[in-house]
């Protein structure tokens, strides 16, 4: 126990691994920062794209959404946001849901929801891009 703080509750092995009680370390914290930085730029792109589509016919809207640059930006927004909101909602659930079954169910539902909306949105963009 040389060099260990007298109030230190962790075993030396725990300290060496440095992962904390969640066993994942600071991975999610860092990923949330990376996706938030990307999210600033991609949200601005989404707003510009949405304004460009306002009041246009279906054919014109499809043409814009299917163009490579717009489609790529939309796909990046979808994947980036889905991961960011998956981490965020997991954090909210872990903060407020303490009962085991409810926690497990909410965490599962969170994962299902994020995958479902992300894949559905990405599929729509890809169908538009490849279908023209």
């Amino acid at each position: 126990m040389i060099g260990q703080h007298p109030n230190e509750m962790r075993t030396p092995m725990r300290r060496v691994r440095g992962l904390g009680p969640a066993h994942t370390g600071t991975g999610h914290f860092w990923h949330q920062r990376v996706t938030s930085a990307a999210g600033v730029l991609l949200s601005i792109a989404l707003i510009v794209i949405a304004i460009a589509l306002l009041g246009r016919s279906h054919a014109a809207a499809v043409q814009i959404l299917a163009s490579p640059l717009v489609a790529i930006l939309m796909l990046l927004f979808i994947v980036n946001s889905a991961y960011h909101m998956w981490i965020g909602m997991q954090e909210i659930i872990l903060d407020y849901v303490h009962e085991d079954k409810a926690k497990l169910f909410s965490l599962l539902a969170n994962t299902f929801f994020c995958f479902a909306v992300a894949f559905a949105s990405a599929f729509a963009i890809l169908k538009l891009s490849f279908g023209v």
Partner: peptide, 30 residues
């Protein structure tokens, strides 16, 4: 910040509806 995050979480459904409607055709888009 947390409330707007949760709102955007469910707001993703609106984005998904918009894109799926565009991919489905003129009627769905209308």
């Amino acid at each position: 910040h947390r409330i707007t995050g949760a709102a955007l979480y469910f707001g993703f459904l609106l984005l998904a509806w918009w894109l799926i409607a565009a991919a489905s055709g003129p009627n769905a888009y209308a």
